[in-house]
Design a protein around this nucleic acid. Structure first.
Length: 530
DNA sequence: CTCCGGTTGTTCGG
DNA sequence: CCGAACAACCGGAG
């Protein structure tokens, strides 16, 4: 092949045509362009032992969302005279083989701050540099370059939203140029190329509409959704995140653009620009941190801290994370995970998570607080794993950041503020319509008992065709005593962290755990007799 | 060292 | 709808 004739666009996130600097650069001055996506079997292929349908790493809803996004990308590329080349295997091995086979001179892919991609990209860039291949890896998944912000702050990421905003300045603008055509795909040689697979082709059984996410993946869907939102200027101008209703499910109280941002079906820079256009044309509008635009800043905040904090996704060895003697109680964890806590508000949210792969931000708060510092005192890493698997918008930086936040391990420290698994939902949805929808076993429970069905007289339970303890579980803990106990443990743990100036060893944690267990009477009181 | 502010708690009183 | 008590946290600025 002639020199400079082939370039490879490696899609990972950034599954879009619009505002895609890597794609645009890949398409410039080349005869052939190879748009590639590598399916990592570990991420995509069925894993029997997982607690939900899906692969070792991802639940079926997110795999499906990704496949839909890839199919949409393929169709858009075809309209531009190209196509998506799908390959299977360990991504760096596959990619390096392609680079050799196609004599690629220019490799382009979006820069990624996640540890998984940092390690992967290191291998690929290493090969490219020895082979003399030009690499272009622009930052386009976030508004700002996390590296720049960390550098501006003296090498450490800012740990509060306000200090982040002060450092951030103006975000980068989306590309104004729209691609009208792409170079041809060259000969693929001996590389095995496939079409975007269906869920069945990957070895999954179809689970049916009722059990799966109502949100369809892809750039086209993202732009359609964005358009609908942007056209409702009043809604955009008055959006206030903390005032949203977590129990709204017929029409969610937020944009549900998060899964599209996660996979890069939607450019956050384009979204940012659209929001500013709306703000310019209205008399008044809400502002960060609570406005829609503020949500994009929060996203960048978490990306920046996550990138600049070693071991961000764990408690140990994480310098911004409080060391807390969390329980290692698998029974409580699985009750929470499988929607069997006996608190309808909590269980309904967990059902929505499993079926839809999405729930409102405040609903996430409610269940995360309940699992960790609020009631069960289970390690936030365990809850993080469940979210990471089941959410279609699961994003490494944001998911871990929010678990750190909600468990009062970092960013937020007012552990006395505990969401009530009873009153929090009730104030938005006194009739319990949300519960009735996601937990149909409780659909005939009268409204005065729907949030606390164990308090309903047996005659009422019988009439509602739901006996507590048989058809629906009794509460795994009593919120009043359990939350009080959690407060006590948090206070002790905080005191220890303060005394030791954050240098808490594993042994210190063990000792504290022993000390906190000295009150078995209290422990027993928290648990309901089952 | 002090002081201030912190996207999103709950309950009670007015 | 709004403020105060609850009990008192932290990061960041000065």
């Amino acid at each position: 092949m002639a020199s400079g004739s082939a370039s490879l666009m490696w899609f990972r996130k950034g599954l879009r045509i619009h505002d895609n600097p890597a794609l645009q650069y890949a398409a410039e001055g080349t005869k052939f362009l190879y748009p590639v996506f590598v399916i990592d079997p570990h991420y995509m292929e069925p894993e029997k032992n997982a607690f939900s349908l899906g692969s070792a790493r991802a639940g079926l809803n997110r795999i499906n969302f990704l496949l839909e996004s890839l199919a949409d990308l393929d169709s858009s590329l075809k309209k531009l005279g190209s196509r998506l080349l799908v390959l299977k295997g360990e991504p760096s091995e596959v990619l390096i083989r392609c680079l050799k086979e196609w004599e690629v001179e220019k490799l382009c892919f979006e820069y990624d701050t996640e540890p998984y991609y940092q390690a992967l990209d290191f291998k690929v860039k290493n090969y490219a540099s020895t082979a003399g291949i030009e690499v272009f890896s622009p930052v386009s998944h976030t508004l700002f370059n996390p590296t720049d912000i960390i550098q501006k702050n003296g090498g450490r990421p800012p740990l509060s939203y306000q200090s982040f905003v002060k450092l951030a300045g103006q975000p980068s603008s989306p590309l104004s140029h729209t691609l009208s055509s792409l170079p041809l795909v060259g000969d693929v040689g001996s590389c095995v190329i496939s079409e975007v697979p269906t869920i069945k082709e990957l070895g999954y059984v179809d689970i049916g509409q009722d059990e799966s996410s109502p949100f369809r993946g892809g750039e086209s869907e993202a732009l359609k959704r964005l358009n609908e939102i942007i056209n409702d200027k009043e809604w955009v101008a008055t959006f206030e995140k903390p005032k949203g209703n977590p129990s709204a499910f017929l029409k969610p109280a937020t944009t549900v653009l998060s899964p599209y941002l996660k996979f890069g079906c939607l450019s956050c820079r384009f979204f940012y620009q659209c929001l500013q256009d709306v703000y310019k044309n209205v008399k008044r509008h809400t502002s960060p941190p609570v406005s829609l635009l503020g949500q994009l800043l929060w996203r960048d905040f978490f990306y920046t801290v996550a990138f600049g904090t070693p071991n961000f996704d764990q408690m140990r060895g994480n310098r911004i994370c409080k060391q807390i003697p969390w329980n290692d109680d698998d029974e409580l964890l699985t009750a929470w995970r499988d929607a069997r806590t006996g608190y309808p508000w909590i269980d309904a949210i967990m059902v929505q998570l499993r079926k839809w792969g999405w729930m409102h931000h405040l609903a996430r708060h409610s269940v995360a607080c309940f699992l960790t510092r609020g009631d069960l005192f289970v390690h936030w890493e365990k809850g993080r794993d469940v979210f990471e698997r089941l959410l279609i918008d699961s994003d490494w930086a944001i998911n871990n950041g929010n678990w750190l936040w909600l468990s009062c391990s970092s960013f937020f420290y007012q552990y006395n503020r505990i969401y009530s698994p009873i009153s929090f939902g009730k104030k938005y949805d006194p009739n319990g319509d949300y519960i009735r929808h996601f937990l149909p076993i409780l659909k005939d429970m009268p409204r005065e008992y729907i949030y606390e069905p164990w308090t309903a007289p047996l005659s009422i339970q019988t009439k509602a065709k739901c006996i507590i303890g048989r058809d629906y579980p009794k509460p795994v803990v009593l919120h009043d005593s359990a939350s009080k106990e959690c407060r006590r443990k948090m206070a002790e743990a905080y005191a220890l962290n303060k005394d030791l100036n954050g240098m808490v060893s594993e042994e210190d944690i063990r000792n504290l755990r022993r000390k906190l267990k000295e009150d078995p009477e209290q422990e027993a009181k928290n648990k309901r007799i089952r």
